[in-house]
Simulated scan of single mutants.
Amino acid sequence: MNTATIPAAPLDGVATGPPRRTGWHALDVTEVRHLTADTVAVTLDVPAALRDVFAHHPGQHVTVRHRRAGTELRRSYSVCPPPHAPGTLRLVIKRAGPGGFGDHATTRLARGDRIELSPPTGMFALPELPCAHHVLLAGGTGITPLAPMAAHALRRDPACRVSLVHSVRTSADAVLADELAELKDEFVDRFTVLYVLTREDRGSGGGPLARRLDASGVHRLLAAVDARPGPDTTFALCGPSGLVATARRVLADGGADPSLVRWELFTTDGTESGPPEPAGRAARAGEARVTALLDGRRRAATVLPHDPALLDALLRTHPDVPYACREGVCGSCRAKVLSGQVTADRQHALDERDRAAGYTLVCRARPCTPEITLDFDA
């Protein structure tokens, strides 16, 4: 998962100090429940000694580390806590193909197994705007951060409204639909859920409807839930890059305040996301020195000419440096450039505000100057 947002206020009972982004913790699997043919909900027990470590905001994610055949896989998943189950943490995991962690989780993971996770991180959250209309648009498993965000907003602010649109291929792919129905029953006057089925059989011999949401479709959906851009309407988008990009364009054309539009991706389509970071030729002819601040400690490494990114140099001597996808999607390696210059492409997890503030994704960044200083804690 990745994000381009501003932090929200913490939940009641959640520690307010700087989050620790490093370290791994093995949690016991208490349940593996199949939601669809290729998606499972994995519930994990969080012992009392780790409750503070895994305290989180709705919308945050964890990184799973899976070791297999001498290799290490890392994947990021949104925290989607089960209703009425304190002391647990739940991940909704989809099988993307053979050999990955999703394949392992959907075919072999069982109660009693253990999973290694990093502490929750990320800044995907609804703006703290009282009496607002929160409009949420999810594509596929992009529902996993948005469902807990909807529940939290409804319970935190008795004057707010929440409208959630979930685009899925068929009704069988609408994960968490039962929980959203219960939430609708609890907040019948303030919560609206609308499903868009892009490949559902239309019946009467019409065959399946196989079409992605385009700009006009997004317009119609926003009108259907009475979502009008304004100072009291917020938007949160999560799903494939094409859907999120289309919705962002529609909202921008409609005059939505960019600070009230939050978004996160879970897949990309290979397109670039914004321009490279500050102009300059990457320092490929020689070595560069990178210093990183992480959890209040300084780490230093030498970037060699053949290193694909700053992350590779840091990992050689500091394996606790956070990362997951290496594709600029999850945002786990987000850091602020304090000195020096970098260039980077495929910065899907950053928006214009992040770039203007000096942030980069270390998995995509390359040096433009001989000395670089990064702050992962910023």
Rank of each mutant, 00 (worst) to 15 (best):
Q341M: 05
G70E: 05
L251W: 02
L176N: 12
H57N: 11
F266T: 06
I6K: 06
P322W: 05
D173G: 06
T106L: 01
L237R: 05
P18R: 13
C238I: 02
T22I: 05
T343G: 11
L176G: 13
A378R: 13
L265H: 15
L194V: 14
A256R: 07
S204M: 06
Q341A: 14
R51E: 13
A150L: 07
T22G: 02
R95H: 14
G203N: 09
D320C: 06
E272T: 14
P158Y: 02
R297G: 09
G122D: 03
G358V: 10
L294F: 06
S259I: 01
R51P: 00
E272R: 14
R74G: 04
C330H: 08
V175N: 08
A300Y: 02
L350K: 12
D253P: 01
R298Y: 04
S273I: 00
P86Y: 04
A177L: 13
T22F: 01
A96R: 09
V14D: 08
N2V: 01
D52L: 05
R21W: 02
R364L: 05
D307I: 06
P7Y: 09
F191I: 08
V32H: 04
V165F: 00
L304I: 01
G13K: 02
L89P: 10
L180R: 08
G205R: 11
D307Y: 04
H134S: 10
P83V: 09
D354F: 08
